[in-house]
Structure formats: C-alpha cells, structure tokens
Design a protein around this nucleic acid. Structure first.
Lengths: 338, 338
DNA sequence: GCTGGCACTCGTACGCACCGAGTGCCAGTC
DNA sequence: GACTGGCACTCGGTGCGTACGAGTGCCAGC
C-alpha cells in the first residue's frame, strides 16, 4: 500500500499534468504544492510510483505523466466529484427549460455538456424499452394501407407503414385502435407483447390477418427502436486534444461516427452511478487514448438512457464528472415534467 | 483572354496539385503532361497566370498552387462533371434501397456521400415548406389536452401538445379531424393557412376556442419546422485536410456544429443545378479554406431540400460533383417511391 | 514565339554544439 | 529509518551554419 504522501504526490502530478499538459518534474511539484518535503524525497516517491505503474516518463530526463492506472487510482481514491457553482446550475436549468420537444431537449443537452466540459458530448435518446406507451394511433392512408404511430411518455414518436393483407374498414379500425389503446396505454414497452397477445382472436376472421399484421409491426417497432439513437456534439473540442493530435484525433472521429461503438460505450456504463472508463479500459481501440465519463438519466427513479463525454485521458475528472452528473439530473427533471 | 495552352497549363496545375498536395513546378508539369512545350515556356505561361491571379507561389522558389480564382476558372470552364462508374451507381442504389424510414434515408445518404467523396457530407432533411400533407391526426390525451401529429409526404412526422381552453368531446374531435383532413390532405404546406382559415366558424361556439387553438398550433408547426434539420457525417475525413491541418480544422469543425451556418450555406446554393463555392466565396469565415459543393434534391421535379459536401479547396471537383449529383438523384428517386 | 542556358532565391535537411530540466544515486543529517 | 543536499549524467530541444536542390526569372539565340 502506498503511503499517504505518495498518494498526495500522485494527486499533485495528475493535477499539474492536467493543467499544464507537460510532464511534471520533482522540483516543480514541490514549488506548486505544499508537500513539506524536498524534491529529492519526491523523486524517491516518484520512483516508487513508477515501479508500481502509476506514472511513467515519456523519455529519460523528462518529467512524469500519469498512466491509465494512475488516473484510475486518482479517480477512485484521490478525487471527488466537483459540484458545479450555483450560477452554473442556474444556467443549466435556464438553458434546458427553453426546450420545446424531445429533439430539442437532446440537442440542448449535447450543446450544454460540450460547452461545460469543453469536450465531446454524447447523449442517447431516451430508450423505448423502459418507457411507457402514451398512445398508439392507427391511420388509414388507403383501403389496404395503414400507418401506425407510437407515442411514448418521453415524447418520442415512431411511425411505420403497414400493408394489410385485406381491406380494413373504418369501423374495424376504430375498434382496433380503441382496444389497443385501452390495453397498452400507460404500460411499459416490455409488457406490451403479453398484453396484446390475444387481441386478434376477438376480431372477425376477415380482419384477423390485418390485426395480426398491425400487432406484429407494433412489436417490431418496439424491438427495432430499442436500437437507440444518439446525438453528439462539441467535436471541435477535439482540437484541444494535445500536441501530437493529428494522429490521435483521426481514430476518435472515426469512432464517434460509428453509432454502434458509441452505443456500446454508453451501454457498458453501469446503470446506477457514474462510470469512468480511462484509456485502454475502453474496448474500442480508437478510444484508447481517451476517457469516457457516462451516467444514466431518467424521468423517474430509473435510468431511461445515458449521456456522457469523451475526452483525452488527460482531463479534469472531478470537474467533468460534476458537470455530467449535474446535466443528467436536470435533464431527468425536464423529462419528468413534460 | 487566356490562350488555349495557358488554360491547359492551369488545368494541369490544378490536377497535379489536387493529386500531390504539393506546389507544382514547370519541369514536373512538362513531364507529367503532354503539353508539347518546354519548361521555360510553361514558366512564362505561369508568370502570366500568376499576374492574372489564377495561381500563386507559397514562397519564392517554390512551385505554384491554384488560387480560389484559379479553381473557379477550372470548375467553370476547364472541367466537367465526372459521371460515376456503373458499379458505383449500383452500389449507391443498393445502399439506399435498404432504408426503412426517413431518418434512415438521410443517415444512409450522409454516410454514402462521405464515403464516395471522402469528405464531410451534409444532408438537409426534406423541407416542410414544399412538402404536402399526408395526414393530420388529433389525439385526446386528457379532457383538455390534445396531441397534434402531422405527417408529410416525405415521411416526416411532427407532433405538438395542445392545452385546450375548454374540454373537447370525442365527437367534436372526430369531426374536426375529418374536416381538417378533407381540406389539407394532399395539399402543400404553403396552402394550408388559406385552406383552414374559415374552419372555426362552422363549429359550435363552445368548441370554437379549441378549434382555433388547434389550427394556430398547426400553423405554428408548419412555420417553426421550416427551420430545417440536417445531418452531417464523415468529419473524420477532415484529418486528410493537409499538413498544416490543426490550424485549419478547428474553425471548420466549429462551423459544422453551427446548424445555422450550414443551413445558410446550403440555402445559398441555387435551386436548380449544382452550386460550387470555393474558398473565400463562402460567407462564413471558418470555411474560407474549404469548398462547398451542393445541389438540391427532391421527390418530384422540385427540390425539397439540399445536400452537399464540404472539403478542402484542393479537392477533386469533377469527381466530387459527380458523386453529389448522383447521390442527389437517387435520393430523389427513393423519396418519390415511398 | 519558343527554347536552352544561367544566375539567383530560398526553403529544407543535416550536423553540431550548447543548454537545461530532470533524474538517480550517495553520503550526510536529524 | 526517513529525509535532504549535492553531484554526475542523460537526453530532448534549440539555434546556427552549411550544403543541397527545386524552382524561378531573364536573356540571347533560333
């Protein structure tokens, strides 16, 4: 186990490196932090920290920089989450309150996060799996062509075309619409399949085919749309990545374009509490020199989706975590209100 | 007026520079192109071209590179639009055919364009102004709370909540829904205001307030949503920008994040035909070292939206223009079918 | 009007010396 | 035993001078 002072040295190294973006040496450390010991002692501590793999030297005769493992220890043990200032909180609330619909909420959230953290922000649209149904609408576009519109409690709307096996009268349509809604409105998506299972049986045999088609389209929509959408922003912050950035930035931009990668990234975050993945802890290779801070957010107690930021491993973890957590909370509130 | 050969020299310079990304000298030119004259003659021609402002030297004793004005002449007079190969055409069609809904069409288009041109692609969602109404749906969520859903012929769906001044019965609702649809379905958005103008008068006085509210919400939606959405992709292609790219890329990424800027950019493109804006021809400062190739696309004869790419001024104009034009055509077809 | 020749420019690459931040180690001190 | 001051050493970065060569402009000659 590392002594208290050595941890203190590690903390100081992380803080200085994050601030200056330059390898930090023993002398500078003692000058900028009241460690109460001489540079020589700090050097000894650094040697130990390096042996343990928490810091490294880019080359001999240079200062030390934290390794992924060093950041990990810093995040887990040495740093808390820095709460936002109250002006910041107010600004968040004001900014999010102006949103008019779900797209707008997500869009504003992305911009907000990117601005607060000066990093790339990723926000997942509220997931359908945990949402409930607000309304199902059926429209007749042509005698044998219907449109199914599904509205969720989070304000999301999905629509699908349906080609019916047989013409379907307005009365039957109204009937189906009413029965469908009475069964599923207010229910969770996960429960819908069970709830509509026996619906076709109560219809005339001539309509049964269409009813089945409608239901299977509905179920398909539920499943397909669980494949989530997301929005990203603040990519210009990548230019602040570092000196050797041209080579770093490419794979990151590429990873950010792969929605699948990002969804997996957010998906890996644990459901409750904040997840921080540092450097090589990220499964995707292109993100090996980035850290991801993610957290779930939701309209109620439960998380319906996740949001987070992607930035260089050399980031201000306490500040970033504070911003991410605060934004997630406010977005949750906004969703609950609407 | 420039002689035929001088134009030929300019064309050769543009082609070589686009290919090599290096200033091109007189000797190299004569070697790579059959100009039929000696380097010395080419040098004279180059001096003239430089006087006229078509090419420039980064520094004395370096080759020449085209100026914005040079590219302009190249695009206008010296180069055509390079048609895609038929395998490419087939690939486009196959790729776009798999789309399931509007979001998917736009998403696929962006990826396709980015991949074909190896540049940043921008696709505007089909505009509502020129679309027609496929259906208007009204749902009663609570006694005095309605939801308005507007479905366009391009497959776009917009929804709005409405708080009614007074409770609104199911019968009245059905009545309003029917009358509304009979008036506006198949009509262009621009015509809707006129068509629904006198609708409230035919309702009982107690319902009239609600009807007016509904109509004004509908009109609002039409107007507000004319503020278009768009999707961008292929930003990782920016890394291929050039050597001095860190300093170039930042303002470009920033510009790309400003939807307003992009919309203006596409908006400036003329309605019919392809628009190419080169370097400083772009109003936005951050895009002064990029060129924008944009074209309108639509489901019928008329353009409903625009798409295009943003890349370095040093781009393969004929190829890019070919790809943009081809993609726009196929997207138009897809939209017309659905 | 085109061409070959020639002097000139200037950016780049390379070698080299110097500087200084930072280290590791060791002997001395509390 | 832990800390400190001192010291030799390493090595990347910087500045400078030189050599090189691509490319130019100009001019005389065909």
């Amino acid at each position: 186990m590392l002594s208290e002072r050595r941890l203190e040295v590690l903390r100081a190294i992380v803080q200085d490196y994050v601030g200056t973006e330059e390898p930090v040496g023993s002398k500078a450390l003692t000058e900028r932090h009241r460690l109460g010991v001489s540079p020589a002692t700090v050097r000894n501590d650094m040697a130990v920290l390096e042996d343990e793999g928490f810091i490294a030297q880019p080359h001999t005769s240079a200062g030390r920089i934290p390794t992924d493992k060093g950041y990990r220890l810093f995040v887990d043990k040495l740093a808390g989450v820095k709460p936002l200032s109250s002006p910041e909180r107010r600004a968040i609330q004001n900014f999010l309150d102006g949103a008019v619909d779900l797209d707008d909420v997500v869009g504003r959230t992305v911009r907000l996060l990117a601005q607060l953290t000066r990093q790339v922000a990723v926000v997942q649209y509220p997931s359908l799996t945990r949402s409930t149904v607000r309304h199902v609408e059926l429209l007749s576009l042509a005698p044998a062509r219907l449109m199914l519109v599904l509205i969720t409690d989070t304000g999301r709307v999905e629509q699908r075309m349906i080609d019916c096996p047989a013409p379907f009268g307005e009365t039957s349509l109204a009937d189906l619409r009413a029965r469908l809604n009475s069964r599923v409105v207010g229910r969770r998506f996960a429960d819908v399949p069970r709830l509509v299972q026996e619906l076709p049986e109560s219809f005339d045999s001539e309509d049964r085919g269409t009813v089945s088609t409608v239901l299977s389209t509905l179920l398909e929509t539920l499943v397909e749309e669980t494949e989530e959408r997301l929005m990203i922003g603040g990519t210009s912050n990548l230019t602040r990545f570092g000196h050797d950035f041209p080579v770093m930035i490419r794979p990151v931009l590429e990873a950010l374009e792969e929605q699948v990668v990002l969804l997996k990234l957010l998906g890996e975050a644990t459901d409750s509490g904040m997840t921080v993945r540092i450097g090589h802890e990220n499964a995707h290779e292109g993100l090996n020199s980035t850290s991801v801070v993610a957290v779930g957010y939701g309209s109620g107690d439960e998380a319906v989706a996740k949001l987070g930021v992607v930035g260089p491993t050399r980031m201000d973890y306490p500040g970033t975590m504070g911003a991410v957590r605060a934004v997630a909370r406010y977005v949750g509130q906004i969703l609950a209100e609407s």
